[in-house]
Amino acid sequence: MKSFLQIQDLHIAFQSDRGTVAALNGVTLDVRRGEMFGLVGETGCGKTVTGLAMLGLLPKSARVRSGSIFFEHTDVLAMSAGELQSLRGRRISMIFQDPSTALNPVFTIGSQMERVARQHLGLNRRQARARAGAMLEAVGLPDVGWILSAYPHHLSGGMKQRAMIAMALLCEPALLVADEPTTALDVTIQAQILALLSELRSKFNLTVMLITHNLGVVAHTCDRFAVLYAGRVVEIGATSAVFTVPQHPYTRALLAAIPTPAAHGKALAAIPGTVPVNPGAVSGCAFAPRCAFVFDRCKQEAPPLRAVAANQANACFLDEAGGDAG
């Protein structure tokens, strides 16, 4: 049986003035119904592109070269514009990093939500307004009447993100893609929003894909997660398993680079070098030039994603070769 969401060997490239730049080089991952799934990586690793591809929202300069995205047994990439339109909002919703740019500043929260509800659910004005109000209440906003008639700039950052979530959930989608939903927010507000997402997940039987650069966020909210590097999944598995024994050198390096009280005064284990600009042009493992455990084979062929335990898989030759980097 296929998973709820299955991305198979997805390759996406961008055409630019300087030629073609590969953004995704074979992303393979699966998300199970009802889970909170994390997609982690640094700037430029392709996590946002993956999210946009799932909603058919790729910019014009992007080309899907190969691969498939099966969502509820249908290939999203094969859908027509009309089918995508009804998929978005109804079955999959997306929220973005900066809630103030995602909301239209010249319309009230209420009228923006009403429009979505009327278009997708065919409700009349009064029903749409009632539904919007109910949703705002569900995301924990006080004084719903006031918020419906408020403009985005009347709300604080945290309230705006809550309103965005309410709008995304209007049609009770099966999947919510949250692209860095808390990056623009303060840590205390971030904790509220993350707690809210967990709560809504059980309330609405929702599957959440959380795109973030913050491993800490993943650690305490996600059931499973995947680490992306240079457009490829390097490690995927259950949160508890991966954090207990991170297998891929990149995952380990990322964790080691976070300042903790234990590392006070010592040099942090920074990852030398930078992310490759065009990972498609690199032969072998894209992380090899920065990897502390690199050996000859890494430079020749790209390691495939292999299961190393029941709930963990990674793309590295290291443990296959019997080497121990622990």
Binding site: F14, S16, G44, C45, S61
Partner: peptide, 14 residues
């Protein structure tokens, strides 16, 4: 350090 600019997630830095 290499001197190549990082590509942003969606927009390609030229």
């Amino acid at each position: 350090m290499s001197v190549i600019p990082l590509p942003a997630d969606v927009e390609i830095v030229t």
